[in-house]
Amino acid sequence: MIPAAFDYHRPDSLQDALGLLQTHGEDARVMAGGHSLIPMMKLRMAEVPHLIDLQAITGLRGITIDGATLRLGAMVTQHEIIEHAGLSCAAPILREAALQIADPQVRYMGTIGGNVANGDPGNDMPGLMQCLGAEFTLVGPDGTRSVAARAFYEAAYMTARTDDEILTAISFPATTGGYAYEKQKRKIGDYATAAAAVLLTRKGGTCASASIAMTNLSDVPVWSEAAAQALVGTACDDTAIKAAMAAMDADIDPGEDNRGPVAFKRHVAGVILSRAISRAWSRT
């Protein structure tokens, strides 16, 4: 499997990368770890006459924890997320999710920026970023702007990023309380049949706040405000969990594919969400 021919660029600054995007327009695409793009190019489902490899731009790397705000450069790999002690302490749900992505070799190469920017409904980080209330930093010819993860995804592979912009960083608040990233997959390395990201805080015996997002159950990640609201003020008991499952079920829109028919996916989504809530609550 050999991809179509392309010209390779490895700019060492963001300005040069943006310049190449300007020059080559629709013929150019940026690449982070390449573990989504290269397989698509090999299958000739993606043709990229000008490939812009971001690996040499040092400004896109690094994890910074500034008080209660976390910032990850777009080129931070899943492996780096797993190994970073400070991050595991400030937002442990990120490590829990990253460990469930692909396999070790892919995690050395795969980046958070590529994972969120690609717009693949099967990717785990977009839903998690919605759960965390993350902001994405986009840099283009007209300057820098910030877009909320919850407003970023428009359809499968369609996002708020314009073709001349590069997603450079992700930021989100440190988490408090309980967390869980629960994922059902057919085998190691597979995308989710259903996955749930849950963050909960407790005040006394009841849930004070909640955030819930689901993965691969629509053509975009699903942040379900109604599911979260069903838990607030409850003790996250069976009745509350059932209410959250019902609210979530109304928000998702799974399609039938080789991971199963719609009814099966809705069933699995409920089971996964129920497990995630229980685990998150046990950690509050």
Binding site: I38, P39, K42, L51, Y108, G189
Partner: peptide, 23 residues
């Protein structure tokens, strides 16, 4: 040749990579 099996694994700058998925 589709980054699943790992038979092509090599070490690249201290990382295990599937060399079928690296240009």
């Amino acid at each position: 040749e589709t980054s699943h099996c790992g038979a092509c694994t090599v070490t690249m700058d201290g990382k295990s990579v599937k060399s079928c998925t690296v240009f």
